[in-house]
Nucleic acid binder design. Structure first.
Length: 872
RNA sequence: GCCCGGAUGGUGAAAUUGGUAAACACAUCGGACUUAAAAUCCGACGAAAGGAAACUUUCCUGCCGGUUCGAGUCCGGUUCCGGGCACCA
């Protein structure tokens, strides 16, 4: 054993051992409980960043911990390999997305391996390979035939210059990121998954996910957004014919306050009115401008225009004007809303802007209504009751909704309706680097799914997109085909699928990654699923996790997977955030610069205020502090730390920096400290090695006294704490406890009296250091393994039994209590473990005497084992 | 705009059920060792006031208010920051 800690040599040696022995190859059975631990697979963007290191270290810590606890662990890894960045890189560097992606995978795989993760690489999946996506296409055809997938028109961002559809991310301030052209909305046909059919189940099953953070379940509940409302119609007369304008509202109690109706620009009524109203047609055209992102629509200026059409109030029959509003979305509910300016904030501001009437119809006792300004209580449905609402006066929310919906029903103009905010999932993408949608369009037969025997529809891999439209649509060799039904000439679908589809079922594929007869091999899925622990960034709380839950139910309905839910326990790690830097180019576009390439000036609080590019010394603009991402180029590559200090230090530092769920602003301050700890651990092991090897280390631990007993108590106390912390995934304090253990052992070893009783000393040291190594081994597996063997504890620490504390070692004869007077700390008393409440009170009163200033005691509160509070 | 989080010393953070705020580290400063540096070891380290000193007192968990013998923790409000908002993944 070398006296110096040499992480590079140790880590190479240990990793080689694991690889050669197949230490992490997961096999079914063995009589142990299975533990499937899954970290969200990465998009192969080029290099790992600190967010990945955090994610995968957490997963590895949990995997190794459970293995030592006696589980049969599966921890797989793969690549979410389709996606937009590959196309961008392709255009920038003139390489095919496939080649770029595969070379990134190769590099990142080596990085992952150097971290020493206990992964079963034999199960690696890569979503851009036909053997993976063929099964996605297979499921698509099944769902298409079942009607779970359907086609309808949907709105996209259209770049009129590049003649291409843009992702929301590619729309910056309403303009296309490459062309700078004003983006427009455009309707195109797309395939949709009927996720709304599963809305109720997706909502209800959240209650059964006990291992999920409350926060994530709340977000999903709100996203699904089940609401109890009323769908009703405003009757109207158009060109002499009776018609109806349908709306949906959750505030039917305010129906008597309706002063107008707002419809989307694409609403048939708006289009009809625009036919002989050029101003309105012009306004509708304006509404087409801008992107489709909800955040943009919700924050843009609310604009509207009167259509001139009048409808009748369904209760009063009064005439109500119909306006076009740019904030009303066609794809949402009915594409039309009743507007009650007095009781809806958005309607209020809209009415003020256009001088529309505001009519109060709800009153909260003790409040005064004024149309001059908006007040919070106007929208309150808990405390209010109806006024100026005719026969509904005096009713509260629920009574009013019941009465009004009953009346509407009687008139045949509406009824109560449960609605969901959740919309069907549009999966068509007019992009190249994705899974081809397996449909053939035939003039005679319509949309025909590709038959099983013709799957997969293989994506050609040698294509470099040019940013103007879909490359597949320009490749006759791809789209020219014949109809599988009638054999006539037909055209293959050229859209690809949303990349969320691949990541919705990869967790199941890992159970049988090479299966050539189906999506999954049934027996393997039944053994390994569900995932016992899923780990990933909180940014996936809604979309990815909802889609994966949905897919699990789709696959369940196909008889492919067991159970209702894919992920039993979920750990959502906080973002690793870092400052962003950019330079504005001549055309106004921002070029994002990696933090490693700039010198930063900070204010006294440490926040970046200015920066210079290292390369040319020129100034660089400072952006916000955001999650590490490819698009903002603020990812910090862990390789530098691994090269300088080793994987164990990188892992230890990352886990020590903060608890997993907390977001973390990246800083490498403290890396040295983590390294110092491991070097100290190694040095100390080297120092005590001979002593531990001697037979002295076998004495009975229950009989140790004095310093040894105190040290042993500390070790077991910290072990108890660390075990609690492992259970609740708070690894930073596990490491604190480990550091304390090392401090205790070092102090004991160097204390003058330790030589006096060498047998007890060696025994306590041997026990303590063995606990420490196992405690640390999930976090720093290489050094722990190496020392475990060197110090003669055993061959492999991977399957060493997990240490549990001994209650007997914790027993204390005397307990320290805190004494407070009126809640203020005034001293300490030492009492016997067995002291009665009365004895404690006497001691405490004596200790606090001088702070009581002769005032009479009102009350004494004794919290056992903690404190005494004297109230005077 | 809407939904979900977060804020504690110079820094990362701890305090698990309402019970000693700042554990464990980092940085800094002082000392030892050294020709020197690095490494290592020992010590100090929230703020203010008083004291020669030992020490004492007061204040302190973003901000304002409340509940309680006692609040970082519970309740109401508020500011700032982060995540998501359906085509980034």
């Amino acid at each position: 054993m070398h006296s110096q800690y040499q992480p590079a040599a140790i880590e190479t040696e240990i990793q080689k051992e694991w690889e050669e022995s197949g230490a992490f190859r997961a096999l079914k059975g063995g009589g142990k409980p299975k533990y499937y631990c899954l970290s969200m697979f990465p998009y192969p963007s080029g290099k790992l960043h600190m967010g990945h290191v955090r994610n995968y270290t957490i997963g590895d810590v949990l995997s190794r911990y459970h293995r030592m606890k006696g589980c049969n662990v599966l921890q797989p890894m793969g690549w979410d390999a389709f996606g937009l960045p590959a196309e961008n890189a392709a255009m920038a560097n003139n390489v095919a997305p496939a080649a770029w992606t595969y070379s990134n995978i190769e590099y990142m795989k080596a990085q992952l391996k150097s971290l020493g993760l206990g992964l079963d690489w034999s199960r690696e999946v890569t979503t851009c390979k036909p053997e993976y996506y063929r099964w996605e296409q297979w499921l698509f055809t099944r769902l298409f035939e079942k009607g779970v997938i359907y086609k309808k028109l949907s709105t996209v961002n259209w770049d009129p210059v590049d003649q291409t559809v843009l992702a929301n991310e590619q729309v910056i301030d309403g303009r296309g990121w490459r062309s700078g052209a004003l983006v427009e909305k455009r309707e195109i046909p797309m395939y949709f998954f009927r996720i709304t059919q599963y809305a109720e189940e997706l909502l209800e099953d959240l209650d059964r996910l006990e291992g999920w953070p409350e926060q994530v379940k709340t977000m999903q509940r709100n996203w699904i957004g089940k609401s109890y409302g009323v769908r009703f119609a405003f009757p109207c007369r158009l060109d002499g014919e009776l018609d109806q304008l349908w709306v949906y509202t959750t505030r039917a109690d305010t129906i008597m306050g309706v002063t107008f109706v707002a419809v989307a620009a694409e609403h048939p009524l708006a289009l009809r009115a625009a036919r002989n109203n050029p101003d309105l047609a012009q306004f509708i055209e304006e509404c087409r401008q801008g992107g489709i992102a909800e955040a943009d629509i919700a924050t843009m200026e609310k604009k509207g225009m009167d259509t001139g059409i009048r409808v009748n109030h369904p209760i009063t029959n009064e005439e109500v004007p119909v306006w076009v509003g740019n904030y009303v979305l066609m794809g949402y509910g009915e594409g039309a809303v009743m507007a009650v300016p007095a009781h809806d904030e958005r309607d209020f501001h809209f009415a003020k802007k256009y001088g529309l009437p505001i009519r109060q119809s709800i009153q909260v006792p003790g409040e005064v209504f004024s149309a001059d300004g908006w007040a919070e209580w106007y929208g309150d449905k808990e405390k209010g009751f109806c006024i100026d609402s005719g026969k509904y006066d005096g009713l509260n929310y629920q009574q009013a909704v019941d009465a009004i919906s009953a009346d509407l029903k009687e008139k045949g103009l509406g009824d109560k309706q449960v609605q969901f905010r959740l919309r069907d999932w549009g999966i068509s993408r007019q992009r190249y680097w994705g899974c081809p949608i397996p449909v053939i369009h035939c003039g005679n037969c319509g949309d025909v799914p590709v038959p099983d025997e013709d799957l997969p529809v293989v994506l050609p891999e040698n294509v470099v997109p040019d940013g103007a439209g879909s490359p597949l649509a320009k490749m006759p060799e791809f789209f020219e085909t014949t109809c599988p039904k009638c054999g006539g000439k037909a055209r293959r679908e050229t859209d690809t699928m949303d990349t969320f589809v691949e990541s919705s079922w990869y967790y199941a594929r890992y159970s049988s990654p090479g299966c050539e007869t189906g999506m999954v091999e049934k027996k393997a899925a039944e053994y390994w699923l569900p995932v016992d622990q899923y780990i990933g960034g909180i940014e996936h709380a809604i979309l990815h996790l909802l889609y994966a839950r949905f897919f699990h139910k789709l696959m369940r309905d196909e008889g492919l997977v067991p159970g209702e839910e894919p992920f039993r326990n979920l750990l959502t790690q906080g973002m690793v955030v870092a400052p962003t830097f950019y330079r504005e180019e001549a055309n106004g576009k921002k070029r994002w610069i990696n933090p490693a390439e700039v010198d930063v000036e900070t204010d006294p609080k440490g926040r970046p205020v200015g920066a210079k590019l290292k390369a040319d010394g020129g100034p660089v603009s400072v952006g916000g502090i955001e999650k590490m991402s490819k698009s903002k180029n603020n990812g910090v590559d862990p390789q530098g730390i691994i090269d300088e200090y080793g994987a164990d230090t990188a892992r230890l530092f990352m886990m020590f920096a903060s608890p997993p769920e907390q977001s973390l602003e990246w800083s490498d301050a403290g890396v040295k400290g983590a390294f110092r700890f491991l070097r100290g651990l190694w040095g100390f092991a080297h120092e005590i090695r001979d002593m531990l090897a001697s037979e002295m280390a076998g004495a009975a631990l229950s009989r140790v006294e004095g310093n040894q007993k105190l040290a042993r108590r500390e070790i077991h106390l910290n072990l108890k704490k660390a075990n609690d912390d492992y259970r609740r995934c708070q690894f930073n304090t596990v490491i604190s406890a480990a550091m304390k253990m090392l401090n205790v052992l070092e102090d004991l070893h160097r204390s003058p009296g330790s030589e006096a009783n060498r047998v007890d000393h060696a025994a306590v040291m041997k026990e303590g250091f063995g606990i420490l190594l196992r405690m640390l081994s999930p976090v720093t597996p290489h050094i722990s393994q190496k020392l475990w063997r060197e110090l003669g504890y055993g061959e492999s620490i991977l399957d060493a039994p997990w240490p549990e504390h001994e209650e007997d070692a914790l027993v204390q004869d005397e307990i320290e209590l805190v004494v407070q007077v009126n809640g203020k700390l005034r001293g300490n008393v030492s009492v016997a473990r067995t002291a009665s409440r009365e004895e404690i009170e006497v001691l405490a009163l004596k200790a606090a005497e001088k702070y009581m200033e002769g005032r009479p005691v009102k009350k004494v509160i004794v919290v056992p084992g903690r404190l005494v509070n004297i109230v005077v």
